[in-house]
């Protein structure tokens, strides 16, 4: 057997599954978004779903909200993750404890985190009760709206909770494999602590931070259950809106749902494209 055939045979099952299910699903969604589905007699594709999506104010509000959620969560998580990693990389006592907590957090599903955030930050949640205890508020309604709020604070809090450990573990492993010698060189060449971080450590860990951030951004842009639990009713995050459209009693809304799904997919594809282009450029030097 030639190497070529061997490789093909090894890859065939995995590629079939991915191509049929994943790309097939994307393709079916794409056809459906153009109102094309011969099985149920729709044989003339058109742009109606997209026109109606791009005409609706709700879609734009949703899109902006979702982008805000994804962008803000990713940036805050990445910054705090780098900070945590800096704090922990030499702390021998706290290291094993925090490492374990980091990893526990990684295994806890987002859904559980979302419920926990709800119980902590809702207007009758733990923090509201503490505020009442200290006489800062008298009634739950006086507590600031941190969940179901228009700025998606609750959703962002949940993502930050869950993604600090995710990015943090990657950055920490990265820092540990780099060691401290590069920074030592920089210090001995006259860089102060900030300069050694800014010009030497940060560029060295940046590729790792970037790849983790791409994963986080794409996930937070496309996740359903977290905004479904913690988000405001209007505007809803894009995945929630797409799901609602899809399960609407009016079957005519389905192509619109598909169109939104395609928008989400295209945004992820753009992320991957820029990510790959950036990393390739770095690798080629």
């Amino acid at each position: 057997m030639s190497d070529r055939t061997k490789i093909l045979l090894l890859l065939a099952p995995a590629l079939s599954i991915i191509i049929i299910l994943f790309f097939g699903g994307l393709f079916a969604g794409l056809l459906r978004s153009f109102n094309y589905m011969p099985i149920i007699g729709l044989t003339e594709p058109n742009f109606e779903a997209y026109i109606s999506v791009f005409k609706s104010k709700e879609f734009y509000l949703s899109f902006i909200l979702t982008f805000h959620i994804a962008f803000t969560s990713t940036v805050i998580s990445a910054i705090l993750a780098i900070g945590s990693a800096l704090l922990l990389r030499r702390n021998f006592l706290g290291k094993s404890v925090i490492n374990f907590l980091f990893q526990i957090n990684l295994t806890v599903p987002h859904l559980v985190g979302a419920i926990g955030i709800l119980y902590l930050f809702s207007q009758s949640g733990s923090f509201a009760r503490l505020a009442a205890e200290w006489g800062m508020i008298a009634r739950p309604a006086e507590f600031p709206e941190l969940v179901f709020d228009p700025y998606a604070i609750g959703i962002i809090l949940q993502y930050v909770w869950k993604e600090i450990p995710f990015i943090g573990v990657i950055v920490l492993a990265n820092m540990q494999s780099l060691g401290e010698d590069y920074e030592s060189v920089a210090r001995s060449l006259g860089a102060n602590r900030w300069q050694a971080f800014r010009y030497v450590l940060l560029p060295l860990i940046f590729p790792g931070v970037l790849s983790a951030s791409v994963i986080v951004f794409a996930f937070t842009f496309g996740a359903y259950e977290i905004p479904a639990i913690l988000g405001a009713n209007y505007p809803a995050a894009l995945p929630v809106l797409a799901y609602r459209k899809y399960t609407d009693v009016d079957l005519a809304a389905r192509p619109e749902a598909m169109a939104m799904a395609i928008v989400i997919a295209i945004l992820s594809a753009v992320m991957i494209f820029y990510y790959l282009r950036y990393t390739r450029k770095k690798i080629r030097g």
Partner: peptide, 14 residues
């Protein structure tokens, strides 16, 4: 370290 006027060259160049 940055004010000592000492520069160290590491074995693996870094």
């Amino acid at each position: 370290p940055e004010n000592r006027g000492v520069v160290m060259v590491f074995q693996n160049h870094l």
